[in-house]
């Protein structure tokens, strides 16, 4: 048998080979630490209350919005003309992680106060869970655009900028948002390169700050790897989105051979929960396993998994015949 020092050398060499090399090594500036901070903040919020709110640019509204309301998903690149808020799920923090609040068993007494940033102005929404579901009501006086985005004169100008941004090739609309942050106009993208940043600068007359999860410093975002395809249908995000965790869900990963899909079975009640996995995740057969973007197995059927993310739907059927969908972010 080798001495300990030699064993350490052999083992370290083999262990280093086990690690996948970064898909695109350089020149890429990873921003995962930013994501981690964002997720941490969200988890802190989730300790008090967890709610998943999806905001879609669409027609203008000033009326109360009810859960299960319409969402504008037909054309994700459509220019924004206002705001529709769709509340698609509710949950609260329980003793054993996130408690789901399905439509037929609402979490009595749950109240929430949240704010939604819109194109050019910030509207505060007050929400209350009722027997009809969650009802959001906008506060009467939205903040004027000038206070939030001083470099842009009015909301119509912001909307023009957004419409221009959405026409930039390679800017995936679900990853684009414009917010007023400390008075700056911030365009947050999943990935950017020099041409995208130049296009954003041009569209905003240089007034915008671009932040990106991945910045390709020398090259094109077209060089980034594309999502793989799996053998079994898996409900996944259509595009990479920044991580944000609103709560935690513990389920046993289960395969429905009839429908050919994967779902989560709650460990306490066996209730079926549809799972929407992050962009690029796939499912493979024999044995049924879920893999991440890089093909690494992250979960196998029969395993109990702890998922971070948020509940999406209490009304529409989720994937795999589930009553609700949990959008996984980590």
């Amino acid at each position: 048998m080798l001495d300990v020092e030699e064993q350490v050398a052999r083992y370290a060499e083999a262990a280093g080979e086990l690690v996948r090399a970064p898909a695109v090594i350089a020149p890429i500036r990873p921003r995962k630490h930013w994501i981690a901070v964002a997720a941490g903040a969200s988890m802190a919020v989730a300790a008090a209350l967890a709610v998943f709110v999806m905001v879609q640019p669409s027609g203008p509204t000033s009326e109360p919005v009810r859960s299960g309301g319409s969402s504008a998903t037909s054309d994700p690149r459509a220019p924004a003309a206002g705001l529709t808020v769709t509340v698609t799920g509710v949950a609260r923090q329980g003793a054993d992680g996130l408690e789901l609040c399905p439509a037929d068993r609402p979490c009595a007494g749950l109240r929430l106060l949240t704010s939604v940033k819109t194109t050019g102005r910030m509207m505060a929404y007050r929400g209350q869970l009722t027997s009809d579901g969650l009802v959001l009501t906008s506060d009467p006086a939205p903040a004027p655009a000038e206070r939030l985005v001083p470099s842009v004169p009015d909301s119509s100008e912001v909307e023009r900028i957004l419409a221009t941004l959405l026409r930039i090739p390679s800017v995936y609309s679900p990853s684009v948002r414009i917010t007023g942050s400390g008075g700056d106009l911030v365009v947050a993208l999943y990935a950017s390169d020099a041409s995208v940043e130049e296009a954003v600068r041009s569209a905003t007359s240089g007034s915008a700050v671009v932040t990106a999860f991945i910045s390709v410093l020398d090259g094109s975002i077209a060089d980034l790897p594309t999502a793989p395809e799996g053998e079994i249908h898996l409900d996944v995000q259509p595009a990479p989105v920044p991580a944000g965790a609103f709560g935690r869900l513990t389920v046993e990963l289960t395969y429905d051979a009839v429908q050919g899909c994967v779902y989560g079975a709650r460990t306490d009640t066996g209730e079926r929960v549809g799972l929407r996995w992050p962009y690029g995740y796939t499912a493979t057969d024999d044995p049924v396993s879920v893999r991440d973007f890089d093909g690494r197995v992250v979960a196998r059927v029969g395993e109990v998994v702890h998922l971070a993310g948020g509940l999406k739907s209490t009304t529409a059927k989720g994937p795999c015949g589930a009553d609700a969908t949990f959008v996984i972010t980590g």
Partner: peptide
């Protein structure tokens, strides 16, 4: 851990580039 190593390597090399 093995899932963090690529991030650490990427961060190092991106810093080297810059």
């Amino acid at each position: 851990s093995l899932d963090l190593v690529p991030d650490a390597v990427s961060a190092s090399l991106a810093w080297a580039w810059e």
